[in-house]
Write a protein that binds this DNA or RNA. Structure first.
Lengths: 333, 333
DNA sequence: GCAGGTCATCGAAGCGCTTCGACGCGAAGG
DNA sequence: CCTTCGCGTCGAAGCGCTTCGATGACCTGC
């Protein structure tokens, strides 16, 4: 049983190969009757265009690369939601997704781009000084970045507006009458790596706190229960008047609540807690956390759309910031 | 700047196109001098073979599909480790990985296979009665499954030997002199879905417990802290003599320890706890959990190897069970 | 010293598809 | 009535690569 080719379809429908191609691509007008005949033949024979041949002739592989930082330190649920939404959205545009890990580095990107395996690139977890960015600028293939490098000039970047998110949290705590607040952030290694989003959150938070005249501070925060516990203990020792906490660290959020409980602080009576994390984590915590969600699905969808637009040759904004949304739950009032 | 083709390389090296091809594929003997000349030209010109053309001519895309269950209920870190190891291993065989979500279903598999987009398939999270299995049997493309359907006849399946894992846990607890033990498993929805590994663990556990003459039981277990807490409370009420616990649920493992602490049971003095989960979770828990790790990386590597072997036309075992390893930590003695 | 065999290389035929230019035909316009 | 146009369709030329058979050149061994 040989695989069905476009020539088989053409013969079966009694038309030329090119006619079948035009029916399938819609790039030229075809009469309704012919179109229907061809479509029927396609169905009857179970025809699927050969991806390689199509790519070769059209110079479009209909595949995009998704470069994921498959290493420790990232929040997995978010990554997954993101990946899912990228795959789903790409399929809506009739594209598939090639999975790459960041540790293939710039060479890997160059390889898939140069071999025309993919038409475009989606890079996640872009760092401030990302070695891949200079390459991207040189590449013919369009790319969309999740996150912002130091100089986004000429690139296309998408992200949650973390500065607004940080500010939103501070605003909320201020509204609740909390006067002394602290931001518990990512593990210190993340800051050292210069991942932009952590810093932008801090900046937005600090700005809003200052605007409200609050006493505010920001601490990095590790992810194991013991380390979180120790950090919260130190925090409460240094800031006995602490009444508001923003946790920008998905893995630590649950532990923070546990630590506060053990250390005799009631949430939300004594301390209001707000997290910047995916909804599922916030909801599962006890008490449920007021949170600004990282809209991983939106980011993925938006990123794919931008990439598709670029593939069409349309021009797109350099920077797309997604508006954060605060959901109020039990942990703050 | 047109992209460099094999013809450019041939001209630059002063040889025929086919010679370049043979140098690159190694499928025919080429003299050392010619080979070197060609390789130099490749380097100088920055040649990358066009993936589409290669696929078309050779009928090999050098891409495999990885079908991931990107939905709730799976353990994300494990999934990630697995995905990473698949991508890394595939690259070692000079293959790339196309990411697919399970929700494209059998049609999606058929599409990528029929369009020759991929040469083979790797399916994760195979269920007992998986609708994709009949399709796989019909497909020309080789496939490797992670997990076991009801009838693995004619397929190629890889998994941790969960029965041995369950038994290993029971053995360990018996060795410690624990006489009354319980297995806390996956959320009940997982059992209802008929995911084989959960049941096989239970079977192995029960068999070993019986062999040691232990009083044993098995409970499903949800994943939120509150539900875990409630379940553990109920468990202790019903089985006041409980002295050994096996937790086969990565998300709940940490919560179980917390619940025991709150309910006044010391670990490991009163209750020894063993988990079946990735090492990182076991290590991060407090006290650190004795655990049987799910060797996600091994599974991924092994699965890719099997798939590559099948692509070479070699015959491979229908079933590959990976031996579990128990790591003893603080939570049991 | 020549038949037979290697070894290294070449040329050309596809692989299955897209796309461009051409063509025939009926309708519209002069 | 003849030209012009546009619509629907066709044929053929690639796209860049692999692979098969062919061709010399060079050894062997009798």
């Amino acid at each position: 049983m040989r695989t069905v080719t476009i020539a088989d379809v053409a013969k079966h429908a009694g038309v030329a190969v090119s006619t079948v191609s035009y029916v399938l691509s819609g790039k030229r007008a075809i009469s309704a009757t012919t179109r229907q005949r061809v479509l029927d033949s396609v169905r009857v024979l179970g025809y699927h265009p050969n991806a390689g041949a199509r790519a070769l002739a059209s110079k479009r592989a209909k595949v995009i690369a998704l470069v994921l930082p498959l290493r420790a330190g990232m929040n997995l649920p978010v990554l997954m939601q993101f990946a899912t939404s990228v795959v789903t959205t790409a399929r809506q545009y009739d594209h598939d997704v090639l999975l790459m890990t960041a540790d293939e580095g710039p060479d890997g990107l160059h390889r898939v781009a140069a071999s025309a395996l993919v038409d475009g690139l989606l890079l996640m977890d872009v760092e401030i000084h990302d070695p891949r960015v200079p390459l991207l600028r040189r590449l013919a293939e369009p790319a969309v970045l999740i996150g912002f490098p130091a100089d986004p000039e000429g690139l296309t970047c998408v992200d949650l507006d973390f500065a607004r998110a940080g500010a939103l949290c501070a605003d909320h705590l201020a509204d609740l009458g909390r006067r002394e607040i602290v931001l518990l952030g990512a593990p210190s290694v993340v800051y050292e790596r210069g991942t932009g989003f952590a810093e932008r959150t801090m900046a937005g938070f600090a700005e809003a706190a200052a605007r409200h005249g609050l006493k505010a501070g920001a601490w990095p925060c590790e992810e194991s229960f013991d380390e979180v516990h120790a950090a919260v203990k130190r925090l409460l020792d240094e800031r006995p008047g602490l009444s508001g906490l923003v946790v920008h660290n998905e893995a630590a959020a649950g532990h923070v609540l546990g630590a506060l409980r053990i250390l005799g602080r009631r949430v939300p009576e004594d301390v209001s807690v707000v997290a910047i994390c995916p909804d599922d984590i916030a909801e599962r915590a006890s008490p449920a956390l007021t949170s600004v969600l990282v809209p991983a699905e939106d980011v993925g969808r938006q990123a794919v759309r931008l990439l598709m637009a670029k593939l069409e040759g349309q021009s797109v904004p350099e920077s797309t910031l997604l508006e954060p949304r605060l959901t109020i739950r039990e942990s703050s009032r």
